[in-house]
Design a protein around this nucleic acid. Structure first.
Lengths: 338, 338
DNA sequence: CTGTTAGCGCCTTCAA
DNA sequence: TTGAAGGCGCTAACAG
């Protein structure tokens, strides 16, 4: 790492005081126009870059927001990140990204890194394992704004960005019912995630509306471990009274289910219809294409970033527990309708 | 942002000098065992976290490596990042990730951020637009190690991690030939990317080996803009002598081609067989499933990280232009063989 | 408008 | 083995 141009260098070169140089660099108006121009020119010529460590050390500003996501493999989180960066970069903020690999310890470690880097705000979607939130409440204690999205902690009084999972699920299941299916299984998510519960409730509400009896035997909670889907599906199909439709908690699960069902030689949607959730890129490409609920993914990221910026700028109270709920859309494809 | 525990606090509490505390914290052996223990205990109890800005300011160590990728949408780059983080975190390094969205200006801006954050090493795969490398050579000038992967700059004398694109392409095309296809089109990448050229050369070599005439009309260079694939395919199929096979530069392109071909009512692979490159997750799920060349994606990230660490630790010369070439594998699926 | 001074939190001499 | 002092590069008073 070679020498870096500093304010001192510029001051010496121009034979003026460091503070004057600093003033022009920080946009302080009380500087002679002449001097200002000279400084700016030289800074430009020397390709001066402010030392952010020294800067942050004294100002406590880092111009950085952090984002922690559970995984990178589906197209969902990458898209959210793009949304966040869109907004953040416009406001002059850098983003530091960490992925926890659906692992709680990694999430805690990531939170530490964010803390060490003194992010001015943190956007988080927790892992499927996360049940305690001390590592995130530490930010609250230090009055660093947090915003949750997707996988949220309901107990923390901070802003959250979600989609209307309840409504989306309701319409997904209603759609199945309206295509004539009455025996609808549900692959549910882990119930420490409120998102799983909201989707489950939407499912239950739809059944209720159409006077369909709820059968716990075909509501299967699973831990989002994709490789378990196959055996779950096989168990379902081996039931004396197997389901003729399936509402899966998300698209990857639905896609896996489609594989398993095709492997058994059953027809989709005739023998069993399927709906997913999220409209992942893959859903339109698989055979049969997957009926699903689409969510405005990039918009979710943008909304979260906007909230964080408002919190940073004190336009919103830190303990505001505003919840931004974005709407979803039912995308009908061949897994439910030929 | 509330107050942070500092060395000063600990010193005051224990009524000893700051330098002693600092010694303990930096592992300096010249400290009384008693004192050491007391300091460590209190630090633990107070959850002392070193201020990384002050630390970096004086030591010039940041324990951070940067990684810049062109996109997040395919599963390729996220997997590479996981590989990098695996190795880096074991060595006590944090990773800061930036994605340039296939946009040259963004890449330059990202490089600036990395520079400002004084990353100790940088792992890069450039955008499809990148033709000049000043923003990256700046790191060389400052003696900050760089490693390229996938989309590399051949002109910079730095370590690189690639797969054997030439060999992979050769085998992909040979496979098509052996299934009886002789008129094989190629959707090539932008030729500023050496990866495109290597894959093209593999294609040409295979044709040559089997005495198949090269026809420039069915070698289509395109800019990886996925939405152009459809019209390219249609043009190819409208040719008086259309191809009966297609080798696409990557899987997303191949997948898009499959859509376009199915839309024309042609049969795959009977009318036209298809091979992609990368074995993206989607390739096994699409109908028909896609024959492709798989690459050890996570391993690529791990290898790049290992190289960066060696460079940082001076176990490798900064101007070493070692090229790590990982091997690929042909995965035969239904897009070439029923 | 400009220069001097002090200090952010840490590490590293130097002297004791 | 310990403490005091100085400096990393920058900003923010305080004088002038």
């Amino acid at each position: 790492m070679r020498h870096q141009i500093t304010i001192k260098d510029i001051a010496k070169e121009l034979n003026i005081s460091k503070s004057t140089v600093s003033r022009v660099l920080t946009g302080n108006p009380n500087v002679n126009e002449e001097t200002r121009k000279k400084v700016l020119e030289l800074a430009q010529k020397l390709d001066y870059q402010k030392n952010i460590f020294a800067h942050s050390l004294v100002t406590h500003k880092t111009n950085t927001i952090g984002i922690i996501v559970p995984e990178f493999m589906s197209s969902y989180f990458p898209k959210v990140i793009i949304g966040v960066q869109n907004i953040a970069s416009k406001a002059g903020y850098n983003t530091i990204i960490a992925q926890s690999n659906e692992n709680f310890e990694t999430e805690v470690a990531n939170a530490k890194v964010m803390m060490a880097n003194q992010v001015e705000g943190l956007i988080v979607s927790v892992t499927k394992e996360t049940k305690t939130f001390d590592h995130l409440m530490a930010f609250q204690r230090k009055e660093v704004p947090i915003v949750f999205f997707n996988r949220i902690c309901e107990d923390m009084l901070v802003p959250k960005v979600v989609v209307d999972d309840y409504d989306g699920s309701f319409r997904a299941v209603e759609h199945l019912i309206l295509t004539g299916k009455k025996r609808i299984a549900h692959l549910a998510g882990p119930d420490n995630l409120s998102i799983s519960r909201r989707r489950l409730n939407g499912y239950l509400a739809a059944l209720r509306k159409y006077d369909i009896e709820v059968d716990d035997d075909i509501i299967i909670p699973y831990d989002l471990q994709i490789d378990k889907v196959k055996s779950i599906i096989n168990n379902l199909l081996d039931l004396p009274n197997p389901p003729n439709a399936l509402f899966a908690i998300n698209d990857p699960t639905a896609v896996e289910a489609i594989q398993a069902i095709k492997a058994r030689g059953l027809r989709i949607p005739e023998d069993i219809a399927i709906v997913g959730f999220s409209n992942d890129q893959i859903s339109g490409l698989i055979e049969p294409s997957l009926t699903t609920i689409s969510q405005p993914v990039q918009k979710i990221g943008e909304t979260a970033a906007e909230l964080i910026l408002q919190l940073i700028n004190k336009e919103l109270s830190l303990s505001s527990s505003i919840i931004k709920t974005l709407t979803t859309e039912l995308i009908v494809r061949h897994s439910t309708v030929r």
